[in-house]
């Protein structure tokens, strides 16, 4: 799997950074406008998947492998839980313990942007890891399709 044609590679090289930037924007502004951790994370994951489709599995896995994806996945989930647990310092699980600040500012709404960032990291890494896993499993299916007749039953 050496990737697609040079046209696709060039377009992907130009577009990817914008997609990631848009995803990060959606994550960061999740508490003010439509969006949030999950949609933003999905968009960032789409950028990784685009790289993988255009350049082939080896190139993508060399820069961002499945081990680091699953590590980021768990770190994001644990970060979200940690933010919820830090609320216990104020007496309640999930308490919004940071000063809420001015409405409609980027830095406002207490812990919500932090939770959004944690979810964004988790979702993007998780979807990428799922895609890698399915791609690796899928190889086995192609191999199985190529050699019919070997019925195991």
């Amino acid at each position: 799997m050496q990737g697609m044609t040079i046209i696709v590679k060039t377009v992907v090289r130009i577009v990817t950074s914008f997609i990631v930037l848009y995803g990060i924007y959606i994550v960061l502004y999740g508490h003010l406008t439509p969006g949030g951790g999950f949609p933003g994370g999905v968009i960032v994951a789409a950028a990784y998947i685009l790289i993988m489709l255009a350049y082939g599995k080896e190139v993508a896995l060399r820069s961002f492998g499945d081990k680091s994806a699953s590590l980021l996945d768990n770190l994001g989930a644990f970060g979200f839980l940690a933010i919820a647990l830090l609320g216990l310092t104020g007496g309640y699980f999930f308490l919004n313990f940071i000063n809420h600040g001015q409405p409609f500012r980027l830095v406002s709404a207490g812990t919500l942007p932090l939770s959004n960032i944690a979810i964004g990291v988790k979702v993007s890494a998780c979807l990428y890891a799922v895609f890698i896993a399915l791609a690796i499993f899928g190889r086995a299916v192609y191999r199985a399709m190529e050699e019919p007749g070997k019925e195991e039953r």
């Binding site: 590590l71 768990n74 644990f78 919820a84 216990l88 699980f93």
Partner: peptide, 24 residues
């Protein structure tokens, strides 16, 4: 009653933290 959220938080934390440290 302050124990109640721990019933959900402790297993979740053990799951995620365990997977992180399991790499080492």
């Amino acid at each position: 009653h302050s124990l109640l959220p721990l019933f959900i938080a402790i297993p979740l934390g053990a799951a995620f933290l365990g997977l992180i440290i399991a790499k080492l």
